[in-house]
């Protein structure tokens, strides 16, 4: 036997279960307990950039909406900087870049308002196209699923994006591209997430 390494093991993940709202969005579970719930204001009032709405539906392998999902988003600001001490760029006051959203219990539709992020410096000095980082948990999901949302009006940047370029099957890259539309004069991006099946969303092991 060799010597033992003294690293600890990561705590194993377990499903968030059907009642994740009680802990992370109690208002939606049907009761009012905290003075403020976290994750409802991603960009804050002072953030530069285009104000956008993002909407979608998560579907399972049968095509049915997943109505008990919780999604968290982590994003850079319009200048491509994260609200984090290791990002030297800095962000606007009130910009957190983090949000949390649950689905409508009846339809499974979810949506949040934010600002469109800018390109972010990636590995090797290669710019990454503007994107949102998403983390998805729900009953039946044993460990949270990571994916990215890119924007269809950034075709050139997307074509050069090092992460999209890693996806061997070009047809699957499309699963990460949100579609822009204008509704009542304001931009809305549609991003449907398919957990399983032929057009399954690409998920990452980050």
């Amino acid at each position: 036997m060799a010597q033992r390494l003294d690293y600890l093991k990561e705590t194993p993940s377990q499903t968030a279960g059907p009642y994740v709202h009680i802990g992370l969005a109690p208002g939606a579970a049907g009761f009012d307990i905290y003075a403020q719930e976290l994750g409802w204001d991603i960009a804050g009032p002072h953030a530069a950039g285009e104000r956008i709405r993002v909407e979608g539906l998560v579907t399972d392998g049968t095509g049915s909406p997943v109505k008990d999902v919780l999604i968290e988003v982590w994003q850079a600001n319009a200048a491509g900087h994260y609200a984090h001490p290791e990002d030297p760029g800095g962000t606007e006051e009130g910009f957190r870049g983090w949000g949390r959203v649950i689905t409508d219990f009846d339809t499974g539709e979810w949506g949040f308002d934010t600002v469109k992020p800018g390109p972010v410096m990636g590995r090797g000095g290669r710019l990454m196209a503007p994107h949102l980082n998403l983390w998805i948990v729900a009953r039946g999901i044993n460990i949270g699923l990571n994916t990215r949302l890119y924007f269809d009006d950034e075709a050139d940047a997307n074509a050069a994006d090092p992460v999209l370029g890693l996806i061997e099957w070009e047809s699957r890259r499309d699963t990460l591209i949100a579609r822009r539309e204008i509704r009542d004069g304001a931009p809305v991006y549609r991003f449907d997430i398919r957990l399983q099946g032929a057009d399954e969303t690409v998920f990452f092991d980050i």
Binding site: G122, M128, Q196, D205
Partner: peptide, 18 residues
């Protein structure tokens, strides 16, 4: 988990600022 498990393997990513 049966209808909610991705069937493709996860794509391994080297970490960036994101």
């Amino acid at each position: 988990s049966v209808s909610r498990a991705p069937s493709f393997p996860l794509l391994s990513l080297e970490q960036s600022a994101s």
